Simulated scan of single mutants.
Amino acid sequence: MAFEMFSIAHFAGLAAAVILFAGIIVFRKQMREPGVNRTVRYGLASLLIVCEASLQLSYLLEHQWDVGSLPFQLCSLMVLVSAVLLLTNRKKLNDIVFFLGSMGALQALLTPNLDEAFPHFRYFHFFIAHIAIVGAALFILAVERYRPTFRSVMRAIIWLHVLAIPAAITNTISGTTNFMFLAQKPGTASLLDLLAPWPWYLLQLEAIVFALCMLLYAVIWLLDRWLKREGQTARS
């Protein structure tokens, strides 16, 4: 069976995402305890690594591994970067995971570029991996208290272009891959369908990415101000 957007299987994946995200927010203070913090970080990182390793293994077992199996899609790269961040706690990776990881994975969850439906392995891999990416971004925000700045936005955008280099080179050399959707729009329905044909939608995406990053930055900034105001009101 082919995967259908906004089907029961799709809503089930979204429901699982909401449960995990809510859990991170509700139990954020408990997750700041050193032992719990380490367990959650390593557990989430292990889940991300297992997701990518199992996907690559499935390609090999099914004799389907080729150049298109390389982890050069944005979310595949974010799986690896998020795992490294959680394992090493390197703050320099926060901007990449928060902006690029959350934006790419959320868009994927809402409009999945997925062919296989429940209960196929790829269905579970897709939702677990993308939910875990957003979970990592939410973890550093709610638990580790990461706060983006305007410089964070610019660093994330610069990193997006750096990460696009191997994807673009591979697309050009192979002529068959479409990493990061640089060669054409995805075959399944997505938000890119609303944009101009190739290559013009790539230019439109530059403005959209900047706008979305600024929106995320503004939301966190406004939320912080609201929480501080509520805290001051409660103390008075």
Results as ranks from 00 to 15, higher is better:
residue 77 L to D: 01
residue 104 G to K: 05
residue 84 V to K: 03
residue 108 A to R: 02
residue 78 M to W: 05
residue 89 N to I: 02
residue 89 N to P: 02
residue 76 S to D: 15
residue 71 P to A: 05
residue 106 L to T: 03
residue 74 L to T: 01
residue 94 N to H: 14
residue 67 V to R: 02
residue 84 V to T: 07
residue 85 L to K: 10
residue 75 C to K: 03
residue 68 G to C: 01
residue 89 N to W: 09
residue 76 S to K: 11
residue 75 C to D: 07
residue 76 S to I: 11
residue 67 V to T: 13
residue 88 T to H: 07
residue 61 L to C: 07
residue 97 V to C: 01
residue 90 R to V: 07
residue 84 V to G: 01
residue 60 L to N: 02
residue 85 L to P: 05
residue 60 L to H: 09
residue 62 E to G: 02
residue 84 V to A: 10
residue 87 L to A: 09
residue 65 W to C: 00
residue 78 M to Q: 10
residue 86 L to W: 10
residue 82 S to D: 12
residue 91 K to T: 08
residue 106 L to I: 12
residue 109 L to D: 05
residue 106 L to E: 00
residue 107 Q to H: 03
residue 79 V to G: 01
residue 73 Q to H: 15
residue 95 D to P: 04
residue 92 K to P: 00
residue 86 L to Y: 07
residue 63 H to P: 00
residue 94 N to I: 03
residue 89 N to S: 13
residue 87 L to S: 04
residue 105 A to H: 07
residue 79 V to T: 14
residue 83 A to H: 06
residue 85 L to F: 09
residue 100 L to F: 01
residue 92 K to I: 13
residue 59 Y to H: 14
residue 80 L to N: 02
residue 90 R to F: 10
residue 96 I to L: 08
residue 85 L to A: 10
residue 73 Q to F: 09
residue 56 Q to G: 00
residue 101 G to V: 03
residue 103 M to C: 13
residue 91 K to G: 02
residue 92 K to D: 14
residue 103 M to S: 13
residue 70 L to F: 11
residue 98 F to Y: 15
residue 77 L to P: 00
residue 79 V to F: 05
residue 64 Q to C: 07
residue 86 L to G: 05
residue 81 V to L: 13
residue 64 Q to D: 14
residue 72 F to L: 15
residue 85 L to N: 12
residue 62 E to A: 14
residue 95 D to E: 05
